[in-house]
Simulated assay, not measured.
Amino acid sequence: MVDDRDRGGLVRAFETLPGLPGLPGNPARPVPDTANRSLTLAETEMLRNLNVEFHGNGLPGAPYSRLVRGGAVPHMKNACSPRPGT
């Protein structure tokens, strides 16, 4: 069972498993996720408009995935702090 209050607990538990390769003194670092939040209405609307343009022009899915799933969404969630009430 994972304790949501201890975000590093799972990583620490995994590092203690025997037989796993690792670097002594160099523990695994969790992926930064400083903003465990939903997107705001404005962010969601921007992505909706991007989807319409991207798919409406017949562009392939791989660039979309890299741009949106691998870049824009994590950036908005982790680097942007919405104002209260937005």
Rank of each mutant, 00 (worst) to 15 (best):
G56C: 03
D33S: 11
L20A: 08
R12I: 02
D3S: 10
G9L: 04
L59R: 15
N51M: 10
S38F: 14
F54W: 15
G71S: 15
L10H: 05
M76Q: 05
N78S: 08
L47R: 06
V68I: 11
P60T: 07
P24A: 00
N78Q: 12
P82Y: 02
H75V: 06
V52P: 00
R83V: 08
T34G: 15
A28Q: 10
M1H: 11
G85A: 02
F14L: 14
S65T: 14
G70K: 08
H55E: 12
E45S: 09
H75W: 12
H75T: 13
T34F: 14
A62L: 12
G85L: 01
V73P: 00
D6T: 09
P74L: 03
P74W: 03
R66W: 06
M46V: 13
T34P: 12
R69M: 07
V31P: 06
G58T: 09
G61P: 03
P30E: 09
L47I: 15
E53M: 13
S38H: 13
H55F: 15
V2S: 12
V2W: 11
D6A: 13
S65V: 11
L23Q: 15
R29H: 08
T34H: 14
L41N: 03
F14G: 02
L39C: 01
T86A: 04
P82N: 05
F54C: 05
R37W: 01
S38G: 15
N49Y: 04
G70R: 12
P84Y: 01
D3I: 03
P63H: 11
V11K: 01
N49K: 10
G61H: 07
V52G: 00
A62Q: 14
F54R: 06
P84F: 01
P32L: 03
R7T: 14
P63I: 08
G85P: 06
M1P: 14
R83Y: 06
P32Q: 07
P21H: 15
E53A: 15
L50S: 04
A62G: 05
A28C: 09
N36L: 13
T86Y: 02
G70V: 05
T34C: 07
G58S: 10
G61A: 07
A13F: 04
P74C: 02
F54V: 07
S65R: 12
D4F: 11
A42V: 08
R7M: 10
V2Q: 13
G85I: 01
E15Y: 09
G8W: 07
R7D: 10
A35P: 02
V68Q: 03
H55S: 08
P82G: 03
N26A: 15
V2C: 11
G19R: 10
L41T: 12
G25A: 00
R48P: 03
L20G: 02
R29T: 14
R12F: 01
G56V: 02
A79E: 12
N36I: 06
G85T: 01
A72V: 13
D4Q: 10
V31I: 14
K77M: 13
P63A: 09
R37D: 04
V11Y: 02
S38Y: 12
L47D: 04
F54T: 13
R69Y: 07
P30C: 05
C80L: 11
G70L: 05
